[in-house]
C-alpha cells in the first residue's frame, strides 16, 4: 500500500533521476539547440530543408568515423590512421571496380559488391595491423598508427600515382551515391543504423563492457580474465572498418577514387569525439554524445559558410571551439570531483 506521500516522493525521485540524466548529457545539447535557434533567426536560409539535409549528410560522415575513433579512445588507444584508411579504401574500391568492370561488363551489381568488399577488406586490414602491433608489441598506439598512417596513404598514392581513379560503374556512383529514401540521402540511414548498433554494443554486450573495462584499467581487466589482446585487436579493426565504410560512402558520393580523400578527417574525428566528452585517458565515452559532437562541428562549419566567414578564418574558429569545448568539459568534471 503506497501512501500518497510515498508516490509523491517516488515521482520526485524519478523526476530527479530524469533531470540528472538530461544534465548528464552535458552542455552539448543545450549548445546545439541554442546554435540552431540563433542561426535560424539570423539566417533564414539555414532552415531550408536542402541545407538541413546537407548538414545531416556532412555530419553523418563525421559521425561514422568519430564513433570508430571513440571505440579506440575508450579502450585507451588512439587512431591517427583513420584518414589514411579512408583514402586507401577509396583507392582500393575504385581500382578493383574499374578492373572488374572490364572482366564482367554485364554484371555491374556483382562488380559493385566485390569492389565494396575489397575496399572494406583493405581498410580493415590496417586496423588488424594496428591492433596486433599495439596489443602484442605493447607499443604506443600513437606511434603505431602514425606509422600505418604513412604506410596506408603511401600505398594509396603509389597505387594511383596521385591521379583520381574514374570509371566506376554507374550503379555505384549514380544509383548508390545519389540514392535517396524519403528525400534523405542513404548515408544518413547507414549512419543511424551504425550508431544504434554501436549504442547497443557498448551498453548491452560483453564486447562493450570489456572495452570500457580495458580502457579504465587494463591490468585489472587482464587479471579478471579478460583477453585484453583479443579485444584490443577487435576494437582497432572495428575502428578501421568504420573508417573504411566512410571511405566507401564518400567515394560513392564524389564518384572517383582519390588518394587525398579524408586528409582532415583524422583530426576532425578526434575533435568530435573529444567534444562529445570522450576522455583521451580511456574508459569514458558515449556514442550518442560523440554523434552530437560531430553534429556540432558540422553545424558550426555550415553556419560559417552561410554567413560567409572566410575559409581561412574558419580554421581559427574551429580551433578555438575545440579548446573551449574541452576546457568547459574539464571545468565541469573538476567541480564534480570536489
Amino acid at each position: 500500500m503506497t501512501t500518497p506521500t510515498n508516490t509523491v516522493a517516488d515521482a520526485a525521485a524519478t523526476r530527479k533521476r530524469r533531470m540528472s540524466r538530461i544534465l548528464g548529457l552535458g552542455l552539448l545539447p543545450i549548445l546545439l539547440v541554442t546554435l540552431f535557434v540563433v542561426l535560424g533567426l539570423i539566417e533564414p536560409r539555414f532552415l531550408r530543408s536542402a541545407n538541413l539535409i546537407n548538414i545531416l549528410r556532412n555530419a553523418s560522415f563525421l559521425m561514422l568515423i568519430a564513433s570508430g575513433q571513440m571505440l579506440v579512445l575508450i579502450i585507451g588507444g588512439f587512431d591517427l590512421s583513420v584518414g589514411a584508411v579512408v583514402a586507401l579504401t577509396s583507392v582500393a574500391t575504385a581500382l578493383s571496380m574499374t578492373g572488374l568492370v572490364s572482366v564482367f561488363p554485364e554484371a555491374q551489381l556483382f562488380v559493385v559488391l566485390l569492389g565494396v568488399m575489397a575496399g572494406l577488406a583493405a581498410g580493415s586490414m590496417i586496423g588488424v595491423v594496428n591492433g596486433l602491433t599495439v596489443a602484442f608489441m605493447k607499443v604506443s598506439p600513437f606511434m603505431v598508427t602514425l606509422g600505418t598512417l604513412s604506410i596506408a596513404s603511401g600505398i594509396a598514392l603509389y597505387a594511383t600515382q596521385g591521379v583520381p581513379v574514374y570509371g566506376m560503374p554507374d550503379e555505384f556512383t549514380r544509383e548508390f551515391g545519389r540514392l535517396r529514401y524519403l528525400n534523405l540521402p542513404v548515408v544518413i540511414y547507414v549512419t543511424f543504423g551504425v550508431l544504434v548498433a554501436l549504442w547497443w554494443v557498448m551498453n548491452w554486450t560483453r564486447l562493450g563492457r570489456y572495452i570500457y573495462a580495458i580502457g579504465s584499467n587494463a591490468h585489472a581487466a587482464r587479471v579478471s580474465g579478460v583477453s585484453t589482446t583479443f579485444y584490443i585487436v577487435v576494437t582497432y579493426t572495428l575502428c578501421s572498418f568504420l573508417a573504411a565504410l566512410t571511405g566507401i560512402l564518400l567515394t560513392a558520393r564524389i564518384g572517383s577514387g582519390e588518394a587525398t580523400l579524408g586528409g582532415t578527417l583524422m583530426l576532425e574525428s578526434i575533435a568530435a569525439a573529444v567534444i562529445g566528452g570522450v576522455s583521451l585517458r580511456g574508459g569514458v565515452g558515449r556514442v550518442e554524445l560523440v554523434a552530437l559532437g560531430a553534429l556540432f562541428l558540422a553545424l558550426v562549419t555550415n553556419a560559417m559558410n552561410l554567413v560567409r566567414v572566410d575559409s581561412k578564418l574558419q580554421t581559427i574558429v574551429i580551433g578555438v571551439v575545440i579548446i573551449v569545448a574541452v576546457g568547459i568539459e574539464r571545468f565541469k568534471s573538476r567541480g564534480k570531483i570536489r
Binding site: 583521451l280 574558419q314 574539464r330
Partner: peptide
Amino acid sequence: DINPFVVTMGMQGIAFG
C-alpha cells in the same frame, strides 16, 4: 588542465588560419 593533444590541435587550426 586541458589535454595537450586537444590544446595543440586547436592551436594548429588557429596558427594555420
